[in-house]
Each structure stands twice: as structure tokens, then as C-alpha cells.
């Protein structure tokens, strides 16, 4: 039994080997650290241009519409060509996922799940309490969560005000790195998502419109 415990402990240690080291904050207790939070606090609709890059080369640009309800954690999204043709449309919430439209290549197996996971990572706050709070070697404040479905998620804030969201596998491999704009008023004005998967790719998202979806809908921002 003792041997098994040692083995489990060794496995857990090994599994976190690639995660960046979180250092205790200087001069203040860990519990006093406020986790950086760029995440949406109200139901919001965002329209972005999405530039798709592989091997440092832009392949195409699309328009993405996302409607997010952080309370029910429901995501509705649509991808359109620059010409306005709807290529993909889906909703994911507590009831599950419904894909109402998916033309090739967006009809590929697991595309919808991966896309919803990416949207959730970017816009919705992680659930539960952080497993660790502290600072990175460079001084950036960081909070780390262990996700219930496995893997790790980190949110950090640099001294320039730029927030980053990272997702790691259970074994500590970096899967997604999200860098948000250094704009405290609207960190979602530009978003860079770098994905390390079977195919590495990057998405550069530039905000066209954002709108709070309440009782009185109205455009909050409209960029030229």
C-alpha cells in the first residue's frame, strides 16, 4: 500500500513536470492574491475577424460571432466566410451540444468540440477554486486550476497589463496559449490563440463589435 502511494505521488510529480514553476509571492500571503480575470461577467455577443495561420502563414480569414452566457455557460457561435456565407453554427450548454450547420471542412469529427473548448477557454472563467496562486519567475501573477475533466488551466497577468490563458494536458504539455490585448477596458479587442495539437495553428482574432445582451441591447463598441 505504501509502495502504491509512493508510485501515485511520483506519477503526480512527473505529470506536473512541464508546468511552469509557480513561486510564492513576495511579501504577501498566497490567499491575498487576486486571480487575473479577463473573463466575461455578463451575457455578451462578440464579432471578430479570425485569421487562421499555420506555419507562420495566413491561410484564410473568417468572421466569427460568439454569444456567451457566463451564468449558464452556454456558448452559441457561428463562423462565416468574408462573403457572409454561414459555414458553421452550433450551440453548447448544460443540455449538450447541437450543431445546426457545418460545411466542409468544419464538419470534421471533433471540430465542434475543440472549437467550443477554445471559446470556453478564452471567454469563460474557470470553475472552482485555483489549485495554486503565486508568481512566475518573471514576476507575472498567476493562478492555476486543475480541470475536472483533466488537464490544467492557468491565467496570468504581465506587468504590461496583458493577460494570458494557458491550457495544459494532464501531463503538462502546453495545448493552448491565449494572449489577450493589453487593454484593461477590453482585453478581447485582439486575441491570439496558439494551438499545439496534431496540427499546430494560430488564430488571430480582431474585434469588430461587442454588445452586452441584457434587457436593452445596444452596441457597446463598433470598430471601423
Amino acid at each position: 500500500m505504501k509502495g502504491l502511494l509512493v508510485l501515485i505521488a511520483a506519477c503526480l510529480l512527473a505529470s506536473c513536470a512541464a508546468l511552469p514553476q509557480v513561486l510564492p509571492p513576495a511579501g504577501s500571503a498566497e490567499k491575498n492574491i487576486r486571480c487575473p480575470s479577463p473573463f466575461l461577467a455578463e451575457k455578451t455577443r462578440l464579432i471578430h475577424t479570425i485569421e487562421v495561420r499555420t506555419s507562420d502563414e495566413t491561410k484564410t480569414v473568417m468572421i466569427g460571432v460568439t454569444l456567451m452566457d457566463p451564468f449558464s455557460r452556454t456558448i452559441t457561435c457561428a463562423l462565416m466566410s468574408a462573403e457572409g456565407m454561414t459555414l458553421f453554427e452550433a450551440v453548447r450548454g448544460p443540455e449538450g451540444m447541437v450543431v445546426s450547420r457545418a460545411f466542409p471542412p468544419f464538419d470534421a469529427a471533433d471540430f465542434a468540440v475543440h472549437m467550443m473548448d477554445d471559446i470556453e477557454l478564452i471567454f469563460l472563467a474557470p470553475q472552482g477554486l485555483p489549485a495554486k496562486k503565486g508568481v512566475l519567475a518573471g514576476g507575472d501573477q498567476i493562478c492555476r486550476w486543475h480541470k475536472t475533466q483533466g488537464g490544467w488551466m492557468e491565467v496570468s497577468a504581465g506587468r504590461d497589463g496583458r493577460m494570458k490563458v494557458h491550457r495544459y494536458s494532464e501531463g503538462g504539455d502546453l495545448k493552448r496559449a491565449v494572449t489577450l490585448a493589453a487593454d484593461a477596458a477590453n482585453p478581447y479587442s485582439t486575441i491570439l490563440l496558439q494551438a499545439s495539437d496534431l496540427v499546430n495553428y494560430a488564430l488571430v482574432m480582431t474585434l469588430i463589435q461587442s454588445e452586452s445582451v441584457g434587457d436593452k441591447p445596444g452596441l457597446k463598441e463598433s470598430l471601423p
Binding site: 455577443r45 454569444l67 457561428a78 457572409g84 453554427e89
Partner: peptide
Amino acid sequence: MKILSIPL
């Protein structure tokens, strides 16, 4: 489209 409150 349904997801948009006003046309894009």
C-alpha cells in the same frame, strides 16, 4: 441571422 441582434 438568429445569433445577431442587428444585421452585420
